[in-house]
């Protein structure tokens, strides 16, 4: 774990949009609007290769939309971004994934009626048996399939899911699904793993093991990780760099210590209520928002 004052980003200034020594993902002027609401408006962001970057911010800050945009799951209204030096702006999601930027989802997408091992095997890229005609000739893909299965089994063991390999993925617990989704993403051998709230809804007993897996991605496999998280303890524990979003913008970034010391960030955006049920005042605000959306729509009609 990087100690205070060491690591590759120790000398990087804790300010929004700051340049990093070896960025794997560079985002420039990306905006995404829904109706009149600006969900994402990021001037500049660089993600350092080989480290764990946390993306935090209050509900509705645009973190998931930002994930969707850079991974090709949603279109941007404007902006450019590069992954590993290649421009991937506007590229289809599956192509982005094949380049090595693989994401998971906030609501897990375990493929319920496929077995756990089939879920895993799906993750491998470049499968010869995935072509229509070659699928009909098993000799073309049997050997590769066995290799993939062996890799999948060893990953399942690592993620303590080995005993579930034959079960339907739909029968796993919420935490196990998170594990499965992360393991499945690794089947694609990604250089950059983007985890959308990997700990959400996970039973506390599993949290620690999940955290260890995330750290292992960096320390043992030298992959880059970006993850969205609400729990500040988790963020402090495993991340090398923290990016704070609010209202679609990046309002602060820095090492966990620097962000932790940034009283304004804590007060303004990470107040204790961010995960609590809506208060009455907030309910009022939500209602007002609905009204505003409706007003805007009728104006544009």
């Amino acid at each position: 774990m990087p100690a205070e004052g060491s690591g590759p980003l120790a000398d990087v200034a804790p300010e929004p949009g700051v340049a990093k020594p070896d960025p794997i993902l560079v985002v420039d002027g990306v905006t995404r609007r829904f109706g009149g609401l600006s969900a994402v408006d990021v001037d500049h962001l660089e993600v350092q290769r080989g480290l764990i970057t946390a993306l935090i911010g209050p509900n509705g800050a645009g973190k998931t939309t930002f994930f969707n945009v850079v991974t090709g799951f949603d279109g941007a209204n404007s902006g450019r971004w590069t992954f590993d030096g290649r421009s991937v702006g506007g590229m289809a999601a599956h192509k982005v994934a094949r380049l090595g930027m693989v994401r998971t989802f906030q609501l897990t997408k375990a493929l319920a009626k496929l077995s756990v091992i089939e879920n895993m095997k799906l993750g491998a890229v470049g499968q010869r048996g995935e072509g229509f005609l070659s699928a009909l000739v098993p000799t073309l893909w049997r050997v590769q399939e066995r290799e993939i299965e062996a890799r999948a089994d060893s990953l399942l063991e690592r993620f303590s899911l080995g005993h579930m390999r034959g079960e339907y993925a739909g029968s796993l617990s919420g935490g196990q699904r998170k594990l499965l989704e992360m393991a499945r993403a690794l089947m694609a051998e990604p250089a950059l793993v983007m985890l959308d709230e990997p700990m959400a809804g996970v039973n506390p007993a599993l949290t620690q093991s999940l955290l260890e897996h995330v750290k292992a991605l960096r320390d043992e496999e030298h992959r880059t990780v970006v993850f969205v998280e609400h729990d500040m303890d988790v963020v402090y524990d495993i991340s090398d760099w923290v990016v704070v979003m609010a209202n679609g913008r990046i309002i602060a970034e820095g090492t966990p210590t620097a962000i932790g010391a940034n009283k304004d960030v804590i007060d303004a955006y990470l107040g204790t209520h961010h995960d609590a049920p809506l208060s009455e005042a907030e309910e009022e605000r939500v209602l007002a928002e609905i009204e505003a959306v409706i007003a805007k729509e009728s104006a544009s009609d």
Partner: peptide, 14 residues
């Protein structure tokens, strides 16, 4: 089958 279960998951896996 993965598309039947969740096409975005299939997409996220390339």
């Amino acid at each position: 089958k993965s598309i039947r279960e969740d096409e975005n998951a299939a997409r996220s896996l390339g």
